[in-house]
Design a protein around this nucleic acid. Structure first.
Lengths: 390, 390
DNA sequence: ATGAAAGCGCTAACAT
DNA sequence: ATGTTAGCGCTTTCAT
């Protein structure tokens, strides 16, 4: 006979004595329910997992006992015993940034609906913190893992590879399938759910070229870690150059991005005459013909914040947009299309990325096939800020 | 002797036969590490938890074994055995809303730094979903629980109360201590980390009154669930009336809040003459003297989005702000202070609420005293949109 | 249809 | 300083 235990936890939740050995924490267990229902715990366990297998009258008694005790299954015990987890671990650079916040919401909505739990951690764009957090999250033996982007610390990559080898689906979000050239070579390939930032950069250039602009600028994010913005910039510049246009990539200063955008407007209007001669050499990497003083007629930005800053400053200075300078953002935030003129921008599948990633994981978990990569659609929304003059 | 197991999982990860009984999932366990280090598993376990207690040379061997095997502790097993959890469960209405997203970030940053894990779920402002999610999260036996607001389904309340009784700190965020009158009576009191929305509503009214306005409007959120906005509105109206001013509370239409704000500008400028006589009766609940046609000179809004919509529309219609109409927002979003004129607003401790809640929980967990309630500071940031004319 | 036994991977308690 | 034993609460396997 197994070690006796007090007949009912319910009667005396703080029952003591009897056994000096380790004891429960006073919580209702399967066994309490079983006692109340007059069966053994395995029957209750079975009822919980496959109710149809239990006799109708037994089931009824169990249902009663469940309600009477207020039983809450202990998930760690269940997972430990079954080796299965319904946790999905997600690593995002930042939860406050509305880009990732909406992705988190998409993940959360879709996973919750499927009965999964979301264990979330933010990395602050740091590969080190990502690795550290990944290690912590993997200790939960999650059913699946979501990470952001395709840049990871070597050890993190190894952990992800090991997890996948053990049958845990791994998905990288927010980047598209690696296109040639710019990507670091890497043995491990995880399914990607996102879009190609190269393509977006190219489309941004083409949009401005199509409006007749020949002197383009890309205002890059000053945040070094935002490699997606840098990638878009490279693709933008390449496309512009390919079309025979002049193009420069300028890095925005750090700090409040709206103010950075305002400041950049000045540089865009008079790029060859730095306001403060004493200031450090400007970081413009001019492309195209180096000689001509580039008076830009159009600028694309790494994000809507920078672009809106420039737009607002233009409005303040009575600089005509798009007449004197066309402005194109990235992200299509609700407030940016309210400005005057409304900002043209690239609408992103922020929420959809979360949903698609979750779906891919759920598919992989049920079907046992690998998570499928997915390229999601974005849209360049042309508004007045890049309208063709005329 | 305990059931024999193959000498090393490392050598033959897929070793079979021997025992038909349930077997591990091929993962590295404490025992594998112990074998590699020539000790028993408890010593490794000990090393992991209190390294200083283990002999130096043993420790060195364990360290090596740990590295060689790539061991990752199984958290469910650890928690089950110890009865301790480092999970904090958080329930937020929405992760995409930047208000809660920043709170989530504050929670995440602070908890991660303390070695805790964040299990997060969103409720979509639905009390039912909150209860359901709460039930799921409590199954993890979290170390602490964070919920949003003080309105919960009865059963959810019971679950929270039971959790607290079992020693799990529970914190409600985003609301302040219940002030009299408006709050539903309730036996259970959890620690609150937030601020009083009554006080904010009052301060908003006082700010406008101090600028000399006597005909005030509060534009409430059309979202029924946003009871905090409604509370601010009630307090706003009460304060205005107390000061002898005229005041009305108008409900914004649903849908895009910027456009709703734009639409509300029309109502504010000509509140007595509904544009479309055929439209359903407007939802304005006029307070103060009912007779006078209230031509508002100032309006406070439930959020910056609505306020900015009105501000932008005013600018489009060449209605002077604050000359003809002063506008006051709530939330103090970065884009709103970039407008022309910059929007006065109430700056909220969005991130700080997360940090403070996490700290309170950590304190409660280490000190074993109850989580302490906290009132956090907000600031009414006066900008040009409510500047005194003259 | 229900139960007994064993075990998931770890840690607490009690040795030595 | 290290090991032995029992047990956390559940599920699997194998009876009955």
């Amino acid at each position: 006979m197994p070690p006796t235990r007090p007949p009912s936890r319910l009667a005396t939740p703080a029952d003591s004595g009897e056994r000096a050995a380790r004891r429960g924490h006073g919580r209702i267990t399967l066994r309490d329910v079983a006692e109340a229902a007059g069966v053994t715990s395995i029957t209750v366990s079975r009822y919980l997992r496959e109710p149809e297998v239990v006799a109708a009258d037994t089931a009824a008694r169990i249902r009663e006992a469940l309600a009477a005790t207020g039983y809450l299954p202990n998930k760690q015990a269940g997972l430990l015993a079954s080796g299965r987890s319904n946790i999905v671990a997600a690593l995002l650079p930042n939860l406050a940034n509305s880009i990732f916040a909406e992705t988190a919401q998409g993940l959360s909505d879709t996973l919750q609906a499927a009965g999964h739990e979301l264990l979330i951690a933010s990395t602050g764009y740091s590969l080190e913190r990502e690795e550290e957090q990944l290690r912590a999250l993997l200790g939960w033996h999650p059913a699946a893992v979501v990470v952001t982007g395709r840049r990871h610390a070597p050890d993190a990559l190894a952990l992800l590879a090991a997890a996948r080898r053990a049958g845990t689906p791994v998905i990288e979000i927010w980047d598209g399938q690696p296109s040639g050239g710019l990507q670091p070579a890497r043995a491990e390939r995880f399914a990607q759910v996102g879009f190609s930032h190269d393509e977006v950069g190219r489309a941004m250039a083409e949009h401005l070229l199509a409006a007749g602009h020949r002197r383009l600028a890309y205002v890059d994010s000053g945040v070094a870690e935002d490699y997606r913005a840098h990638e878009r910039g490279l693709a933008f510049a390449a496309a512009a150059r390919r079309a025979g246009a002049e193009v420069a990539v300028l890095a925005a200063p750090l700090g409040d991005p709206f103010n950075a955008g305002r400041e950049m407007l000045g540089r865009l209007l008079a790029p060859a005459t730095p306001a403060r001669p004493a200031a450090p050499a400007k970081r413009a990497r001019s492309g195209g013909s180096e000689k001509a003083t580039p008076l830009f007629t159009a600028a694309a930005f790494a994000n809507d914040h920078l672009a809106s800053g420039a737009l607002l400053e233009a409005s303040r200075r009575r600089v005509s947009v798009p007449g004197r300078l066309a402005l194109l953002g990235f992200g299509d935030f609700a407030w940016a299309r309210q400005l005057d003129p409304p900002l043209s921008s690239v609408a992103l599948p922020r929420y959809e990325i979360g949903v698609a990633a979750a779906r891919a994981l759920l598919d992989a978990l049920s079907g046992q096939r690998a998570a499928a990569p997915q390229t999601l659609a974005w849209t360049l929304v042309a508004r007045e800020s890049t309208a063709r003059p005329r």
